[in-house]
Simulated scan of single mutants.
Amino acid sequence: MQVTTRSVASTVRRAQILDATIEVVASEGFASASFKRIAERAGLSSTRLISYHFAGKDELVSALVEHVVEGIGEHVGALVMAEKSPQGRLKAYIEGVVEYADTHRAPMAALLQVVMSGAWSEGKPASSDVSHLERILKDGQERGEMRAFDLRVMAATIQRAVETVPFQLQTDPDLDCAAYARELVELFDRATRVDL
């Protein structure tokens, strides 16, 4: 029973450190995210508590990226899987990513800071894998619901369009994200649909 208590306490402490890291990186920038600042934000008595749970800043950054990407994946994945048609899945993907960026501004800003700082680059997976979009688009083409186009180019273009939302929110915090998503859905529906 003691092992379970320790693992629960360790999980809670790691989550507390990750949340504080997200807050510091999002509000102060990646360069300011020292263990000292993170410990202060988390209300920890010592930076050793961070070092106990994370081997170093690289591991903490990896955990932050994984945490945010998993959150996006869970949110958007559930919406996409609920749709039957490729066009419905594409719409759900676009709306889901934009909605997540709107409702999870600090994690998205932190992810953006990490990627832009170059702290998440060499030897690590790309921050925006487009294979999921390629599968949706390929299915649409195979069903005859979408026109012929280069899957990689279209998937990358859609991905970049939704990835810009955190940038937009930094310059325009009052951005109407629902309207933004509707415009993107319309744009990519027109770009992919079969001409009648």
Score class of each variant (00 low, 15 high):
3 V>T: 12
4 T>D: 05
6 R>M: 15
8 V>M: 12
9 A>C: 01
9 A>I: 11
9 A>K: 08
12 V>S: 12
15 A>Q: 14
16 Q>W: 04
17 I>H: 07
18 L>H: 01
20 A>F: 10
21 T>R: 00
30 F>K: 07
31 A>H: 14
33 A>D: 15
34 S>Q: 08
34 S>W: 03
36 K>T: 15
36 K>V: 14
37 R>K: 15
40 E>P: 00
41 R>N: 09
44 L>A: 06
45 S>C: 05
47 T>D: 02
52 Y>E: 15
58 D>E: 03
65 V>C: 02
67 H>D: 14
73 G>N: 09
75 H>K: 10
77 G>V: 01
78 A>H: 06
81 M>E: 13
82 A>K: 14
85 S>G: 02
87 Q>W: 02
87 Q>A: 14
91 K>Y: 02
92 A>K: 00
93 Y>D: 01
97 V>G: 08
99 E>W: 04
111 L>D: 02
116 M>F: 10
116 M>T: 10
117 S>A: 12
119 A>P: 03
127 S>L: 09
130 V>T: 13
132 H>T: 11
133 L>G: 05
136 I>F: 10
141 Q>M: 14
146 M>Q: 02
147 R>L: 14
148 A>L: 10
154 M>T: 12
155 A>D: 01
155 A>T: 03
156 A>S: 10
158 I>E: 02
162 V>D: 03
163 E>Q: 13
163 E>P: 01
170 Q>S: 12
171 T>H: 14
175 L>S: 06
176 D>P: 05
178 A>N: 08
179 A>G: 00
184 L>Y: 04
189 D>R: 08
189 D>Q: 04
191 A>Q: 04
194 V>Q: 05
